[in-house]
Design a protein around this nucleic acid. Structure first.
Lengths: 248, 248
DNA sequence: CTTGACTGTAACGCAACGTCATAGTTTACT
DNA sequence: AGTAAACTATGACGTTGCGTTACAGTCAAG
């Protein structure tokens, strides 16, 4: 799908897509002949996420770090966005109330205090940023997450892409033996996927480190286990075994 | 009332008030001793209007020109804002729908077309700008409105302030003889008010010209007559008589 | 009478694009 | 086939609506 059609679909401008590409928020693949942008269905899903978060008032940079975070969980994101939209709806209803009361007070039917006249305007601090931080962390998580830190800005962008799919496809394996053939083959794929997304700067040691992070940091544990109970423990072990076998 | 309290009331920052003062959108009076800003109740009403329009997505410059326009009508503005808020509420409900369907489609319960995934995002062209233009015009009206054009930017700001009150207080006079004492005294007050708000660049001839504009341009006619049927005609005559008596 | 909270202006900074300008590409139509 | 119209890409600068210092005067409390 080309940029123009995507823009039309999503109700945004082509320039906006260029911008998101430029800052690394949404990097579509390119037609190798002419360099034109080509958006896949997965890109569209990402764009939807981006626009939802944008609607919730998140700055693009924060959206980027959220989507990049390995602990990011799509359904949880949707629930957060739902909360925000319900809150917004409430605010708008308050403003409608304020409006109608203001009209009445103009006509002298009622009187309004100064405070009342601004009911619904206060949209200053959305608690959603904080909540998002609690859910997926941001700098603090990234700081503990040394291997992400080691990446250049240019490499960071595509980390989260496919993370969701990955965990989901791995969920069914969690009752297998971490050392089993099938589990280890999956780890090989995961390693490959990580390396592709992290720009080939990925050693088996770091890979195992991430596995440890999955059980050590409960934010990761909780989110990963949502794909299947015990998945994080399984992954930690399987990743460790994989790394061990790689290095010797 | 000082800036800090106003900001707290309206849920905005003091810097925002400074900004609105700077661009001439809301110029409070000053404490002559120390130059501190002092907001009257009327200023608060103006601020409420500004915030409503801002909420509707109007750029500050357009808000300014709207509020400046002599044909501006407060209740009509409220109705327009009400329309917008209802539209917004609708849009949010659509997005909530999109969200819930997306979650379901994620779980494989349903399938969604690409178009569906972006339901509710298109908030590109709000028809409210156009509607506002139809209601009160903008450049086109200002252009026909030569006396406004002749003013410096610095003088323009406070034009609309009190316009509403003025028309309302004049409405009851519309059945009087335009040449009567009471009518002419009202015209004297109106002339004074205009001069104060237009920065003393106001001659009786221009004053009469404005009166002609009130009956010549139906946008003015319609809006003014909303304060009382026949008010525009009455004003045109009374203003002409007043001007005539002033010049000889 | 000093300290701290508050006020002012001025100036730069910033996010998220809009808006050219310039140039290669594809489509549509003679 | 030729050519105009429509689309694409990449800079690069412009714009809106404030946030954020920086620096200075002012006022209330101890």
């Amino acid at each position: 799908m080309n940029a123009k059609d995507v823009a039309g679909l999503a109700g945004i401008s082509v320039r906006t897509l260029h911008h998101y590409d430029h800052i690394g928020l949404l990097r579509p693949s390119r037609n190798h002949e002419n360099g034109y942008r080509e958006y896949t269905d997965s890109d569209l899903d990402q764009l939807q996420q981006i626009l939802f978060f944008r609607e919730c008032g998140f700055p693009l940079a924060k959206i980027q770090s959220l989507l990049q975070n390995p602990a990011f969980h799509r359904e949880e994101a949707f629930q957060l966005q739902r909360k925000y939209l319900l809150h917004e709806k409430q605010r708008i209803e308050t403003m409608l109330n304020t409006l109608e009361r203001t009209i009445k007070s103009m006509k002298g039917e009622i009187t309004m205090s100064s405070k009342e006249k601004f009911g619904g305007f206060d949209m200053n601090h959305n608690p959603y940023e904080d909540e998002a931080r609690k859910l997926w962390g941001d700098e603090s998580v990234n700081r503990s997450n040394a291997f992400i830190q080691s990446l250049s800005e240019n490499e960071k962008e595509s980390v989260a892409k496919g993370m969701d799919d990955l965990f989901r496809s791995l969920a069914d394996l969690r009752h297998e033996d971490p050392a089993s053939d099938i589990a280890q083959k999956a780890m090989a794929l995961m390693f490959k996927h990580f390396n592709q997304n992290f720009g080939h700067t990925y050693t088996p040691e770091v890979f195992a480190g991430v596995g440890q992070l999955y059980v050590a940091d409960e934010r990761f544990t909780q989110n990963i286990d949502r794909y299947g109970h015990g998945l994080s423990t399984f992954l930690a072990e399987a990743m460790a075994i994989f790394a061990q076998r790689q290095t010797k």
